[in-house]
């Protein structure tokens, strides 16, 4: 083989990898869109499921997913932003604690999602909820807080998505020019005023990116909510933090594996998958677009 041929061969081989991966992505998305699209209708999105969930709509699952991720966002964004602010604005570059926090964040990101499920059950539901029940109600046979519910599931997901928010926010803080901090300090702003009035407003695109990525991740995760609050089917919409909830991802799992009549459930299944896919992918595309915008601003 000549040298040019070898050059071409390596380019072709690696290019083939890209083509294969993109091809598989295309097949997955294409297959889901092809079968799911005919299912989508206003009624599918807004109705209750009927007939063992093979008919009707998936409104409770959409509602549950939105409620879950909203609660999760309320918990994770302040925590994540505060951690990132501490890491980037307060901890010195040689801070040992900051190095440990960064390592913890990195490792937290790699904990298997099912372990988060066990943690949510063991800590939030059994320990925290159980302790509240012991202190307030004192009747272990009738748990009020010590049982799976949307609050506990949301908090579990908040811990799971914490690294996403921290890493994205810190990147955004890094993109805020040093000049602006100095300008504020030079005008007699305190450190906190500098952070709140100058640094954070200038990092808001990045913080929003982190929030969107966290929501997308939280909306798609099923394993952590298996034991912390997701329900197969609920005849009512959750209205209380302690209620269980239906969830798009969990609904997909249930329809695909536990349905008494898999063939009958298939149209509803494809429809649900498509809704979930559109939700997570569009959030991610939005995040990538947002990020590319402020990265470009950073470079110029």
């Amino acid at each position: 083989m000549t040298r040019t041929a070898r050059d071409r061969a390596l380019a072709a081989a690696t290019g083939l990898c890209v083509a294969l991966v993109l091809g598989m992505l295309l097949v997955v998305v294409g297959e889901i869109v092809r079968h799911g699209w005919p299912q989508l209708s206003w009624a599918f999105l807004t109705d209750q499921p009927t007939a063992d969930m093979t008919g009707g709509g998936i409104f409770p699952a959409i509602y549950g997913t939105v409620a879950l991720t909203l609660l999760m966002t309320v918990a994770v964004v302040p925590m994540g932003v505060a951690t990132a602010v501490w890491l980037h604005e307060y901890a010195g570059r040689s801070s040992r604690l900051a190095a440990v926090v960064r390592a913890a964040v990195h490792n937290l990101a790699g904990v298997p999602s099912i372990v988060f499920g066990l943690f949510g059950l063991g800590f939030f539901v059994l320990f925290l909820g159980g302790s509240i029940d012991d202190l307030v109600y004192g009747d272990p046979t009738r748990p009020v807080w010590g049982k799976p519910g949307v609050l506990w599931a949301a908090l579990t997901l908040a811990v799971l998505t914490l690294p996403v928010v921290i890493v994205t926010t810190e990147e955004a803080l890094r993109a805020v020019p040093r000049d602006l901090r100095e300008a504020a300090l030079g005008l007699g702003a305190t450190r906190l005023q500098t952070v709140v009035r100058v640094v954070l407003p200038n990092a808001r695109a990045g913080i929003l990116t982190g929030l969107i990525l966290a929501v997308s991740r939280g909306a798609g995760e099923v394993a952590p909510i298996l034991f912390t609050g997701a329900a197969n089917f609920l005849p009512y919409l959750p209205s209380d933090l302690r209620d269980m909830f239906m969830h798009l991802g969990y609904h997909v799992f249930v329809l695909a594996t536990q349905s008494p009549n898999v063939e009958a459930a298939r149209p509803a299944l494809y429809g649900t998958v498509l809704v979930l896919l559109v939700l997570t992918l569009s959030l991610n595309v939005a995040a990538v677009w947002l990020r590319s915008r402020y990265r470009a601003a950073l470079r110029s």
Binding site: E182, A183, A184, G186, G188, A189, T190, Q193
Partner: peptide, 25 residues
């Protein structure tokens, strides 16, 4: 007070830039 080598206005309105120090005070 301090004026820096590279002009560093906040990415806000002219008015808000000048008013910044007053507001934080």
């Amino acid at each position: 007070g301090m004026v820096f080598q590279k002009s560093n206005p906040f990415p806000r309105s002219i008015f808000e830039n000048v008013a910044f120090g007053l507001r934080i005070a």
